[in-house]
Simulated scan of single mutants.
Amino acid sequence: MTEKVMAAIDGSQFSQAVCDCAAWASLALEVPLTFLHVNDNHAAPSEQDLSGNLSLGAREHLMEELSRLDEERARVAQEQGRLMLQSAKERATEYGVNAAGTRQRNGTLVETLEELQDETRLLVLGKRGEGVDQASEHLGSNLERVIRTLHRPILMVPDSFNRPEKVLMAFDGNRTTRKGVELLARSPLFEGVTVHVLIVGADLADNRAQLEWALETLRGAGHEAEGAIRAGEVESTLHAYQQEQGIDMLVMGAYGHSRIRHLLVGSTTTDMLRRTRIPLLLLR
């Protein structure tokens, strides 16, 4: 089965950025691109029960009318989804992608993505869905559930996307982040991109050795690489470094390493997801 860049789109303000980011990733990775739109069959507001004081005939008529309205709503949602997918495909073609695929499913986004993850090399999706556009510090609940469920790299996109030139890897020297450095080093997604590695912690010999390993790994793969060790609180230190260096994409592990890691997104990751204004690649 051919692995693809899978891009989840909806009616939110983030979908254009998702299209552009997914097109860039598809071209860089040289893998096909598929746009996915899911009609959430649990998302429609429940109908108020108006039948209690009606006669049998009136109740039957009301149920038939509600059923007809549900069918019409489903038809409209299907057509809206088709138009979104067609628009996304046209935008990807303008970006240089040939023959992007489209899929429309009924169900929930998380369940659909879980079904498709065997053919997903990279998932691209917006920071929030169409229901929470205006809540700038609110993290879309779908995004959190997707991160908990999927075992594929996830690229979260804010409301605009530009091809990255400087990438920051949040690194702490543990096995997961060392694998992240190795993955980043060999990924064609970051060819020609300057990679920064930041350890948030004390400037100790062990941290200096870990940083040197990361930089040697990246430079050995042909990357221009820079690094630093900074003391401070993780989220604010990463943000300050990003601003200082003009970083335009952040790479992090999706979980901490506590016993509840399989139940909750790591708190640092959640904070960065909520506040970041640049794309964030989460490695699983």
Rank of each mutant, 00 (worst) to 15 (best):
T34W: 08
A58E: 15
S12F: 01
W24R: 01
A44F: 09
P45I: 13
N53F: 13
F14D: 07
L33H: 04
G57D: 02
F35T: 11
A25Q: 02
H42I: 04
P32M: 06
G52Q: 10
W24Q: 00
N41A: 00
A8D: 00
L50H: 06
S12P: 02
C21N: 03
L29A: 14
L33K: 07
C21W: 02
I9M: 14
S55D: 13
C19R: 10
L33I: 07
G52A: 14
P45A: 15
V38Y: 02
A43T: 00
A43C: 05
F35R: 07
S12H: 01
G11Q: 12
Q16G: 08
D49Y: 13
P32V: 03
G52S: 08
S12V: 01
A44D: 08
E30D: 15
Q48G: 12
C21Y: 03
P32W: 04
A8T: 09
Q16W: 06
L56N: 09
N39F: 10
Q16S: 13
W24V: 01
A25R: 02
D40S: 01
G11Y: 02
D20P: 03
A25P: 00
N39S: 10
L56C: 07
A28Q: 11
S51C: 14
D20I: 09
P32C: 03
C19Q: 04
L33P: 07
A22C: 08
A23G: 02
A17W: 01
S15C: 14
S26K: 10
G11H: 09
I9Q: 10
S15I: 09
L54E: 06
H37F: 13
I9E: 11
Q48L: 13
L50P: 06
V31H: 13
L56T: 12
